Simulated scan of single mutants.
Amino acid sequence: MKEENEDAKKEAEMALLALNCIRNKYKVPEELYLDEIKEIIQHHQKRHNLTHLSYQSAWDFLINRFHTNIFLEDTIVNDLHFVREAAREIEELSKCVDWKKRKEGEEKKEKKTKEEIVLVRWVRTLETFSRLCKLRNEELAVIIGIIVQLFRAAKFFSEDMIRVIILS
């Protein structure tokens, strides 16, 4: 039974990654994705059934649709609670990264962990969201706080992460 569950997670991850490869330059009719993506995100919020990468990919796909549909903002902010979810995910992922070990390994150019890769993706998604989102309220302050916390965690240990944060 556990193998089936892992296979389903891998399949969902691959599907969400593939979907996310449809960049915002391609107009995808909202009726083809909005209800399903909302359902995927809400289901994960209740059951935590996706990998970090899958969940981030679903959000990234939705947020990149801002370019073609500014009305998604209300859904993303108020219905799906993007900022709260991003903060939770980044906090959880940050705890999984051994920043001191990362610094020691940089000299050997060790491969980044999956958590580090997903953290970079979250930072880029936050940047896209904050650039495109028209709401200027406490949500923006929370995003800035998330970035500051990540910066503090990584500042002495991960030059790559700092570079991503600064450039975002």
Rank of each mutant, 00 (worst) to 15 (best):
E3N: 15
E4I: 15
E6F: 11
A8M: 15
K9F: 01
K10C: 01
K10W: 01
A12L: 08
E13K: 12
E13Q: 15
L16P: 00
L19A: 05
C21A: 13
C21Y: 04
R23L: 04
N24L: 03
K25G: 04
V28S: 05
E30K: 11
L32A: 06
Y33G: 04
L34P: 04
D35I: 11
E36W: 07
I37C: 02
I37Q: 05
K38W: 05
K38Q: 14
E39C: 14
I40G: 00
I41M: 04
Q42S: 15
Q42M: 15
H43F: 15
H44F: 07
H44L: 14
Q45R: 15
K46Y: 05
K46G: 07
N49L: 14
L50V: 05
S54C: 10
Y55F: 09
S57D: 02
S57Q: 05
D60T: 09
F61A: 08
L62M: 11
I63N: 01
R65T: 03
R65K: 12
R65P: 00
F66M: 14
F66Y: 11
F71Y: 13
E73S: 13
E73C: 13
T75I: 15
D79H: 15
L80T: 03
F82S: 09
V83C: 08
A86K: 09
A86C: 13
E91D: 15
E91P: 03
L93Y: 05
L93M: 13
K95V: 08
K95Y: 02
W99T: 14
K100I: 14
R102S: 04
G105S: 09
G105C: 09
G105N: 09
E106K: 11
E106M: 10
E116L: 09
E116S: 03
I117P: 00
I117D: 05
L119E: 00
R121T: 02
V123A: 07
V123L: 08
R124M: 05
T125A: 12
T125F: 00
E127H: 13
E127L: 06
L132A: 09
L132Y: 04
L132I: 06
C133N: 05
N137Y: 02
L140C: 10
I143W: 00
I144Q: 09
G145Q: 11
I146Q: 05
L150V: 02
L150A: 05
L150R: 03
F151I: 11
R152Y: 06
A153G: 02
F156Q: 12
S158R: 05
E159L: 08
D160Q: 08
R163E: 06
I165G: 02
I166M: 10
S168Q: 09
